[in-house]
């Protein structure tokens, strides 16, 4: 999922302070799963903002809505009946959702209520960790299902480096060395010989190095 974290309340207040009527929009997908921008977080932020504004002597009216997805135009259309009655939109979706709202409603200011972080997985309740960087050329079949691009601090394709110690990365004792994980996994699978295969230099143009990316499927158009 795409993970996100709510921005500090003060930062959100600074963003929306000129407005009296706000539409606070959550998203039912990734940000719901990572408890950053679902229905519950919308209600919580709405309460917190209203309390904060009332404390400073202002009443701000906040309409709450949570869309099935904010990254699809057909769901954004559900905002049409509400958009005229508000001064600005505060979105708790990832950056994709915020931009979709901005694209659809050109005359309304849209603010992000979360910082979009990374593509990750839930390790345990309340903990999410980065697992994929969308490099556009997946290596997981070679590295035993552990991504050196997302999980090695240096994105080494032929690791580990000298900073690997007792299975941990030199950047912090809580960070696993991805190449130690890869070695352990290959060993468990009896595929140690794969470790000897050198991976050639990666073509980073498949990732962000090639500029903004697009997928075009003519069969679905």
């Amino acid at each position: 999922m795409i993970t996100a974290e709510r921005k500090p309340i003060q930062e959100i207040m600074n963003l929306v302070s000129p407005y009296k009527n706000l539409l606070l929009v959550g998203c039912n997908e990734c940000v719901t799963v990572c408890s950053a921008g679902g229905r519950k977080e919308v209600a919580l932020l709405s309460s917190a903002l209203q309390v904060a504004f009332m404390k400073s002597g202002r009443i701000v009216h906040i309409q709450e809505m949570t869309l099935e997805r904010q990254c699809d135009p057909e769901y954004i259309e559900q905002l049409v009946p509400h958009i005229d009655s508000v001064d600005a939109v505060l979105s708790l979706a990832c950056g994709c959702g915020v931009q979709e709202i901005a694209r659809r409603f050109k005359e309304k200011m849209v603010f992000p209520g979360v910082n979009t972080k990374f593509m990750g997985a839930s390790e345990r309740p309340g903990v999410w960790a980065e697992r994929c960087q969308g490099c556009g050329d997946c290596l997981l079949g070679v590295t035993g299902g552990i991504c050196p691009i997302a999980r090695c601090s240096k994105r080494l394709q032929n690791g580990p480096c000298g900073g690997s110690s007792k299975g941990k990365c030199e950047i912090g004792p809580d960070v696993d060395c991805a190449w130690q994980l890869i070695w352990d996994r290959l060993k468990a699978l009896g595929l140690q010989e794969r470790y000897e295969t050198l991976l050639p230099a990666k073509n980073w143009r498949n990732g962000r190095g090639g500029g903004p990316r697009k997928i075009v499927r003519e069969d679905l158009m």
């Binding site: 309340i9 003060q10 917190a48 309390v51 904060a52 404390k55 400073s56």
Partner: peptide, 8 residues
Amino acid sequence: RLLNDVGI
């Protein structure tokens, strides 16, 4: 923590 953030 939330209350603290909003000044209550």
